[in-house]
Simulated scan of single mutants.
Amino acid sequence: MNRSQFASLIACTSLMFTPLAAIAQVAPPLGTADSFAVLGNSGVTGSTLLGTQVSGDVGSSPTASISNFPPSTVAPPFTLHLTNNAQVQQARTDAIAAAGFIAAQGPGTVLPAQLDSQVLTSGIYSFSGGAADLAAGGSLTLNGPGVFIFQVDSALTTNILSNTVGTADPCSVFWRVGSTATLNSISFLGNVIADGGVTVGDGSNITGRAIAGTGPTGAVTMAGDGGNTIGGCSTASETPASISPIPTVGTAAIVALVSLLLGGGLFGLRRRKVQG
């Protein structure tokens, strides 16, 4: 068990033994998934023509199917992972743990399924009927500091021309989705962690992450011709420590070494002559 898995286990265990009334919303530890803005299970498809600009790592595990990159792009210093490497595998494991960590925090305040014109502060929220739907042209306002947790037990849909706005830190907003997420907002705040697939509509902009397939399968699909963005919360992975250069010997040391060798050689020659 690595450190990120151990941290997730400890956090979940602490929640289990905390009285329900005392539980406050807590951001899930993301571990290796922290560097990712887009993470799939059965693949990632970028948008075409104008492409999608992603500020964060992009990868998919166990199916490393990445398409339409380019014209979609990953901004430096982040990485487009074209293989199911160890980092992507660990990111998926940590994303699954994060989804479980969020689910363990309970339903909190129950909202109507239809979101439009609500103004919310930090807290835990769930939805009557399990699904959440932001109306076309509608607006959801998230204001103030702290962590926002949204428990969407089935599907999340944000319709065309909708917006999520406000003073909340998008990186502290988490949407746990029990099935699929379809994001068609002009702007959307938060990290979507879905059991199923995540579809990002044409011209939609996500400040956060699109993580799909914490269930058995799920892809991230950036639909349409693009011109949109995803990211803003990812932290670039630490680069391996640079290899220290081989120590060099200074000129004075070389001169001293040569003098020592020459002196030893002359001493040896003189000794031979005396013995002869």
Rank of each mutant, 00 (worst) to 15 (best):
M1I: 13
M1D: 08
N2M: 03
S4R: 07
S8D: 06
I10P: 02
A11D: 13
C12M: 14
L15C: 00
M16H: 03
M16F: 04
M16C: 11
M16V: 10
P19V: 04
A21C: 01
A22S: 13
I23G: 02
A24M: 10
A24K: 15
A24G: 10
A24L: 12
P28E: 01
G31V: 05
G31K: 07
T32L: 01
S35P: 02
F36W: 06
A37T: 02
G40T: 06
N41M: 08
S42Y: 02
T45G: 08
L49F: 15
L49D: 11
G51N: 01
G51H: 02
V58N: 06
G59D: 04
S60Q: 08
S60G: 09
S61G: 02
P62R: 08
P62C: 11
T63P: 00
S72I: 12
V74T: 00
P76E: 11
P77Q: 02
L80H: 07
H81V: 04
L82P: 03
N84H: 07
N85V: 05
A86Y: 14
A86D: 15
A86R: 14
V88L: 09
V88W: 10
Q89V: 10
Q89L: 08
Q90R: 10
A91H: 07
T93C: 05
D94Y: 04
A99G: 01
A99T: 01
G100D: 11
A104E: 07
Q105D: 08
G106A: 04
P107D: 12
T109Y: 10
A113H: 09
Q114I: 13
Q114F: 00
L115M: 14
Q118H: 13
L120S: 09
I124C: 03
S128F: 14
S128I: 14
A131L: 03
A131Y: 12
A135I: 13
A136I: 12
G137L: 08
T141C: 04
N143L: 07
P145W: 09
G146D: 04
Q151I: 11
D153C: 06
N159K: 13
I160D: 14
L161V: 10
V165N: 14
T167Y: 09
T167S: 15
D169K: 03
C171H: 04
C171W: 10
R176M: 01
G178C: 07
L183D: 10
S185G: 12
F188P: 00
L189S: 04
G190F: 00
N191K: 00
I193T: 05
V200F: 06
S204L: 06
G208N: 01
G213T: 05
T214A: 04
T214Y: 02
P216L: 12
G218I: 06
A219H: 08
V220A: 03
T221I: 11
A223Y: 05
G232W: 08
A236Y: 04
S237K: 12
T239K: 15
T239F: 11
I243V: 15
S244F: 09
P245T: 05
T248E: 10
T248A: 13
V249Y: 03
A253T: 14
A256Q: 13
L257F: 02
L260I: 05
G265A: 14
G265H: 11
F267H: 03
R271P: 03
R272I: 15
R272F: 08
K273I: 13
V274I: 15
